[in-house]
Amino acid sequence: MKYVLAVLVENKPGVLVRVAGLFARRGFNIESLAVGKTVDPAISRMTIEVEADEKTLEQVVKQLNKLINILRISNLTHEPSVNRELVMIKVKANATNRAEIQQIVETFRAKIVDVSLHSVIIEITGNEEKLEAILLLLSHYGILETVRTGKIALLRGSKVIKNGEVKENDKDVL
């Protein structure tokens, strides 16, 4: 199954290589990986989506924990959380079907961010089902190119990740 891990790492050179290399050499599958700074610029947060069985996931987490630059790992899979991914889709479009595409875009609350004679670029944010649905629809017009950010996830409510555990919010949030 797919698991979502939130990983806090020291923002140091080579950290991404360490994580990616570890997955590659131990034969773990990364479905997606997104990285960015946190409020504390010395710390970055990775959201890693892993395809694994339970035992493999346990190894993933344990092996990641051994990396010195990794601070905390939390498994958000079974926590109530908001999962999002941003996708940009370049679709074939011309004067005759542009309006039709526009309608799909509106229904999905997506946005057209670029228009040219023969194509449009659509930007959409959402969870997996929503993204798959629009991609399927748009494939009828011909998808030229897509780019995805990878999934990011945040716990719902005032819960935060602290010391690798999910806790009610108090002051210092990362």
Partner: peptide, 8 residues
């Protein structure tokens, strides 16, 4: 001492 060895 290495938790990753346990159950590996």
């Amino acid at each position: 001492i290495d938790p990753a060895e346990i159950g590996k």
